[in-house]
Design a protein around this nucleic acid. Structure first.
Lengths: 144, 144
DNA sequence: GTCTGGATGTAATAATGTAACGCTACGATG
DNA sequence: CATCGTAGCGTTACATTATTACATCCAGAC
């Protein structure tokens, strides 16, 4: 769903960072897929007639996009998803369907810090739930 | 702290799985470190005069230990920590200090499923909080 | 112009993880 | 006892993921 790119433009303008064509292109590729994308898949999808992309190209763009709160890294998959709401990168909770691989992002209310050790200062949280989404539960007869 | 190995022996006996010498050795190495350990570090620490360990050796042992609930994988670090309480593998919440790298494990009360999408059936959760532990906060003067 | 810092190109390699196949040892079963 | 099936491990090769280091380019400040 476009709108993501335009939102990203606005968000970057507002925060004073540069969404260059290359970075925008990577964001577009991540956003277009509705499932988590691998870095090397992105690499192979970049137009090699115009840019000469190598691994650092993609990883740098992803680093930027993650810092900007436009993309999340799905840690347990080594993959990346577009953030539907620019700039809310920090508090995201991801629900990943292991059947269709789609990811639903929920803006966490300070996710899961119950029983936090005394005085621990949390800077960044990774919260990923793996399971089966409703749609797959309904459609699959006798799926594992 | 030993006790972990003995607990693991008991746990495996109870659940009818085999903690072989190799698996026990890997668990020992993970438990001995009080920080997350990398798979290839384990590989290099295994006694190569007695076993001829290759990457699959370590990964298979780790898979077993994780299945058995004796070890956790720290997803965002590609590293592994011993579980202080055998068999509670599923519901763990990890607090990882980015300064000293030590991990504190908390047995989660069904960690962070607030705002769960309708009907999503969670099978496995990854909950990792990164920050600074109390001890590092106190000891470090003007640390970033 | 020219300087500068951020962005990108480039080459090489490091680090992490898996597939596929074979062998061995051991318990179950006839 | 024989032999069968399976778990565990060895072994080779390779796939995937990620980084380091250095060169170059380019837009804006001066």
């Amino acid at each position: 769903m476009p709108g993501i790119l335009e939102e990203a433009d606005k968000h970057c303008a507002k925060t004073g960072v540069r969404l260059t064509p290359l970075r925008r292109r990577v964001l577009e590729l991540v956003a277009r897929a509705d499932v988590p994308v691998k870095a090397y898949d992105l690499l192979s999808q970049i137009d090699h007639t115009r840019t000469n992309a190598k691994p650092p190209t993609v990883y740098r763009a992803l680093d930027f996009l993650i810092d900007a709160g436009l993309v999340h890294r799905v840690e347990a998959l080594n993959a990346f998803v577009a953030c539907p709401q620019a700039g809310h990168g920090h508090a995201a909770v991801l629900y990943v369907c292991e059947n269709c691989t789609k990811v639903t992002e929920v803006q966490g209310t300070r996710p899961g810090q119950e029983n936090k050790p005394d005085g621990f200062e949390v800077r960044r949280s990774v919260v990923e739930h793996y399971g089966i989404c409703l749609s797959c539960l309904k459609n699959d007869t006798s799926k594992t």
